[in-house]
Design a protein around this nucleic acid. Structure first.
Lengths: 158, 158
DNA sequence: CGCAGAGTTCAAGCCAGCTTGAGTTCTTGG
DNA sequence: CCAAGAACTCAAGCTGGCTTGAACTCTGCG
């Protein structure tokens, strides 16, 4: 109980430790720092030191990425957390709820797509006029390059 | 009824027509062709001509992208279709079912994530030992750069 | 004290999925 | 027959999210 509450002697972690414990490469951590997602202080010899709570932030970043958010969006969200004082339960809770909405939306979207797919299996995609999938794309035209959806199992790998 | 069945006089479409009707930019269509996703024949003057069925292929590509597949994977799937003869209902049906599995998996994954998020809201992410989100990331470490998840509403735009 | 191993900073590279631009050629209606 | 507009081919560029490499510096055990 007296472990996170007592800020007495913070135990700072090196980038290597953070990398190891979070599973995120050190290069990625530096990148995150550049992007303002995490912060560090430096030792006399200019080496990064992280607070324990950074692990939590990183976990959150990863979860958010899985939900489908871009780093910039994640940064925005994290910026709403108090920079200095350790975030309270309520702080995280608020963030999580936003994520939850996104997730629900995304799940709903995929379910819609699945239903369309079902009807598509029925129609065999032969009656172009009728097929939901076919007709839908008219309005989609998702603009811009870059990330689109999940890519489970990296294509070029294995 | 005698419209898709009778192959008598194929009506070929220019890239402009295909672009307009599919909502996909001509440049993207050329790119798809480079990648082997669609095919065209050429006029005497070297301009592309597409079959009507190409629209269907494109619709399929778009749907698959929404499901979260990379173009390379989509190509693989499409390659299992008969290149020459117009795909039958059974052909598409088979493909659609694979998609459907992917979709189900993806939906399940997001639901799991949502549940974790719920429990995370409960724990407030304060008990690091217990939090699902937190502990999960240990094993995730999704490798490789590039597309990850959906990005609804392009970050840099609007 | 010495040296290996961990860290540091740039800059450049990579992959996906396209777009943009330059320079050229086809096609077609008036 | 000719000009406008549609298409063609490259090559280069762009966004995200990192990784890789080179060239150095710190830190800590023996």
């Amino acid at each position: 109980m007296a472990e996170e509450n007592v800020p007495s002697k913070e135990h700072w972690l090196s980038i290597g430790e953070i990398a190891h414990r979070s599973g995120v490469a050190a290069s990625a951590l530096r990148f995150y720092e550049d992007q303002g997602l995490i912060a560090s202080r430096r030792t006399a010899g200019n080496q990064r030191q992280y607070q324990r709570s950074t692990l939590r932030r990183i976990a959150f970043v990863q979860a958010a990425q899985r939900v489908g958010l871009a780093l910039a969006e994640i940064k925005n969200a994290l910026d709403s957390l108090p920079e200095d004082r350790t975030p309270t339960r309520a702080d995280w809770s608020k963030l999580s709820k936003t994520w939850r909405n996104r997730l629900d939306e995304r799940i709903a979207e995929l379910e819609r797509l699945r239903d369309d797919l079902d009807s598509c299996i029925g129609c065999g995609c032969l009656s172009l006029q009728r097929c939901n999938l076919y007709n839908k794309e008219d309005r989609l035209a998702t603009r811009g390059p870059g990330a689109r959806l999940l890519n489970v199992g990296i294509p070029g790998e294995a």
